[in-house]
Nucleic acid binder design. Structure first.
Length: 800
RNA sequence: GCCGAGGUGGUGAAAUUGGUAGACGCGCCGGACUCAAAAUCCGGUGACCCUUGGGUCGUGUGGGUUCGAUUCCCACCCUCGGUACCA
């Protein structure tokens, strides 16, 4: 009997898989394809951590299972290699990002190979390589061609610590998603992708996706569709027309004042001289407030009067225009009509500043006074010809009226903003644009990309100076205009790394393709059949990738609507309740466990810990259970074989096949392993096993413990990899039991159980049951009200 | 505040459409093997009561529906995610 020498075994099979190219599907053959993808990772300087394993290893088990089920499985790997950490590391240690990135990638690859996963390395991707970012630049130029990339000056999020602007999605609670510094606003000219053009489709297509509901929900909220009306208010004595968005045009007769965001472009022009100093002071003071302070909703309302008045288009009344920070510039038009009787915030504001309140909607159509605000739908009052209408009906009538006058009408508003993709950093894909004094913004011609990122750059010199490092690089920044050939300047910014990751999955099927971002002959491998990654990307990567896919479809490059038909989020492994991070010093390295018990045991333990989508707090007590399990399995597989198989043996085998198969299908790895343990416990107790049953067991084990299974399979005399064998089939006929145990209840309380023929009739069963001593005790002398029989489960005798 | 997910033994966790709560694992207790220990194997292990058979309670808390509720309904408490005056 051989020992389970995991060190030798794991090395041996990793080598075997590599030499025999076991993980390289025939890419010319997309029939029966299964594109299994985990989110690629950032090549950090740390070793691979438990989080990586928790993403990759169970995903690999799933891929191996699919392969044994007969799929042509493609599981590529790559690196999201551009980004801030490498650049910051360079500033601190003087090591060029290209060098540290290259080192990190090669080290991570070694570790990924040790994991024993079925990665196809032929199509490795490194987003920081020119052959990749050439096509990121191509994507930019294409989007520009399609009118989906544009430059605009607007107030944008600025992270002072990262020294760059950020997209809306990358700001949480007013903090930078990456470094948690307070984000400030700056008025800058930046590049945007027009994701809002796809807002409606991004929203509606969610319904068809097999994604976690929670994630779809988050995307719906992020897109933030809101159906309402746009209404124009003219300003007394000015040519300006203030446009507002409201979901309650039925309450317009109660609009007794207006509020502009302090950043609203009209503030300067409409403010009267006597109000100017107060308005200026207020605008300045809001600038100083942090995003968090400004947006905490329980804050007291503040604001000042501009001195200007607008005309309510339905009442023709003059209403004062105020500014207040409770109106945010970034949503809608940055201006509102305020209806204090119908909106809690307006009500607070009006009460504080003594502005008039007119009741316009009530539940019953009667007048109830202005002591409180009524924000529900109801019956319209105090609104001339609209009186007596329901809110719903009044909205339609008011919208019709506004439309007929050309001053508004029904409108749909989204919370989603265009995606700001410029970054004032070095380690990213340069934006392929040239700024010419005469010709303006000129895209770099397609035959001149990639616009190469220069190697020789002094990062420390520019850091913290609010300029893009590339702006200081003379050879880079100076270029001739492609149109007029006069001296011009390149765009000094690089692209958000989320642009790189928004299309990488398209390139994997042929990552060395030279004539385009992805090989049109290989698009049959798309879209991804199973995508597995963290939930933290819900409103960033996962939204951007969907948008880019749709844009490329409309550009005629793809013929599908959604990149990730099936999405699964692995849970997070925490340590003492906290997310693991290097800065907290609470990371757990898999390496010591690999050294001690091997990759098979470690990956299986991660899967056995609990449900894959829940993660959990890390503890290694219990890993010994998996070690014992493989040891027992190992010995069992070397037992002297028994040529006979009892009905019970076959029952155990086939019920195990059945549950392991369905558990794997739904990624319930923990319960699948439990079933395998039960299987082993049974046959260890029996002390013998048949060849047939033993072989099928090892096949069931293989996706979890690929190295060990290969070794056993070879020991059994097989010449081919176990992953080329067919997944065992459950024969239902063996899973049927003739005798079953039925629970016996009296008044719903368990009083015993009985082993009985499965097909026994209710009458016969009840007769047998009533004769049982413990049951008789409870029912004798009592009136039987009801007898409930759940076939295969229980009987319940209800007595009075 | 709002939205979503979740609270089950000492512990990680299981439980078809409501149908024997705690599978499987860890830990712990007892036993076998051993000079002894480790490893391994066997048995036990929700709490309380009781002499065995058994009984009472028990899935965050309090109600409800039901013959029967971890599962459905109502109210509340706590934890974790998301969101943040979104007009």
């Amino acid at each position: 009997m051989t020992n389970y020498d995991f060190k030798a075994i794991e090395k041996k099979w990793q080598h075997y898989w590599n030499v025999n190219r076991c993980h390289e599907p025939d890419m010319a053959q997309s029939e029966n394809k299964f594109y299994n993808l985990t989110m690629f990772s950032y090549p950090s300087g740390d070793r691979l951590h438990v989080g990586h394993w928790y993403n990759f290893a169970p995903a690999d088990t799933f891929a191996r299972f699919k392969k044994m089920c007969g799929y042509n499985v493609f599981q590529p790997q790559g690196f999201d290699a551009f980004g801030l950490p490498a650049e910051n590391y360079a500033i601190k240690h003087g090591i060029h990002p290209a060098i540290s990135t290259r080192q990190n990638i090669s080290r991570m690859k070694e570790q990924l190979i040790e994991m024993g996963a079925m990665f196809d390395w032929r199509n490795e991707i490194n987003t920081s390589s020119p052959e990749y970012y050439k096509w990121t630049q191509w994507l930019f130029l294409k989007l520009m061609e399609m009118g989906l990339a544009y430059q605009k000056k607007s107030p944008v999020n600025w992270c002072p610590s990262c020294s760059t602007v950020l997209a809306n999605e990358q700001v949480n609670n007013g903090e930078c998603d990456r470094c948690h510094s307070q984000v400030t606003k700056r008025l800058l000219k930046q590049w945007f992708f027009k994701i809002t053009e796809y807002a409606e489709e991004l929203l509606t297509c969610l319904d068809s996706l097999n994604w976690p509901e929670k994630t779809k929900h988050m995307q719906r909220n992020w897109i933030g569709k809101s159906i309402g009306s746009s209404i124009q208010f003219s300003v007394v004595g000015h040519s300006e027309v203030i446009e507002v968005f409201t979901t309650r045009s039925d309450t317009i007769f109660g609009a007794t004042y207006m509020v502009l965001a302090p950043e609203h472009p009209f503030v300067n022009s409409i403010t009267t001289t006597n109000c100017l100093s107060k308005v200026t002071e207020y605008v300045e003071s809001t600038k100083k407030l942090s995003e968090i302070d400004r947006t905490s909703s329980d804050r007291d309302k503040s604001g000042v009067f501009t001195g200007a008045y607008a005309i309510n288009p339905l009442t023709q009344q003059e209403i004062p225009i105020w500014i207040s920070d409770y109106v945010v510039a970034s949503y809608g038009t940055g201006a509102i009509m305020a209806v204090p009787s119908g909106d809690e915030r307006d009500f607070q504001f009006a009460t504080k500043f003594n502005l008039p309140i007119i009741e316009v909607v009530s539940a019953d159509g009667e007048i109830h006074g202005n002591d409180q605000c009524f924000s529900d739908y109801g019956i319209v009052i105090n609104s001339e010809k609209y009186n007596g209408m329901t809110s719903e009906a009044a909205k339609i009538s008011v919208d019709d009226f506004l439309e007929s006058k050309g001053i508004g009408g029904a409108k749909v508003q989204y919370k989603l903003h265009d995606w700001l993709i410029s970054r004032q950093r070095y380690w990213g894909a340069p934006i392929p644009i040239i700024h010419c004094d005469d010709c303006g913004i000129v895209p770099v011609p397609f035959d001149q990309i990639p616009v190469l990122l220069p190697d020789d750059i002094n990062l420390a010199k520019t850091y913290g100076q609010d300029i893009s490092p590339l702006a200081t690089h003379d050879n880079f920044i100076n270029a001739n205009c492609p149109v007029c050939n006069k001296p011009a300047k390149r765009d000094a910014d690089t692209m958000d790394t989320f642009v790189c990751s928004s299309w990488y999955y398209l390139r994997y099927p042929d990552s060395h393709f030279d004539d385009g971002p992805f090989n049109p002959d290989k698009t049959a491998w798309l879209p991804i059949d199973q995508y597995i990654g963290g939930a933290e990307h819900a409103t960033m990567h996962l939204l951007y990738a969907r948008f880019i896919t749709k844009a490329l479809r409309d550009g005629g490059y793809l013929n599908f609507d959604e990149p990730f038909s099936n999405l699964f989020h692995q849970g997070t492994i925490t340590r003492d309740g906290a997310k693991m991070s290097k800065s907290k010093g609470n990371t757990v390295s898999p390496d010591t466990y690999i050294e001690k018990c091997g990759a098979d045991v470690f990956r299986s333990y991660l899967m056995f810990m609990g449900p894959f989508d829940e993660g959990g707090d890390w503890t290694d007590t219990g890993i010994v259970g998996i070690e014992r399990f493989i040891q027992k399995s190992w010995k069992l597989c070397q037992k002297e074989l028994n040529s006979s198989e009892s009905a019970k043996d076959l029952y155990i085998l086939h019920t195990t096949i059945k549950s392991v198969t369905s558990d794997l299908e739904s990624k319930k790895f923990n319960t699948a392993l439990s079933r395998l343990m039960e299987f082993v416990n049974y046959f260890v107790a029996k002390n013998t096993i048949s060849k047939n049953i033993r072989d099928q067991f090892v096949q069931l084990l293989a996706p979890f413990m690929p190295h060990a299974a290969e070794e056993l399979w070879e020991m059994f005399g097989n010449k081919n990899s176990i992953f080329n064998s067919n997944w065992p089939k459950c024969n239902e006929q063996f899973t049927i039991e003739s005798m079953i145990e039925i629970a016996i209840q009296v008044n719903g309380k368990l009083r015993g159980s009985i082993e009985i023929d499965k097909n026994i009739s209710k009458e016969a069963l009840l007769q047998r049951v009533k004769e049982l001593e413990n049951i008789h005790k409870f029912i004798s002398g009592k009136e039987i009200v009801k007898e409930i029989f759940v076939p295969g489960r229980l009987v319940n005798i209800v007595i009075k």
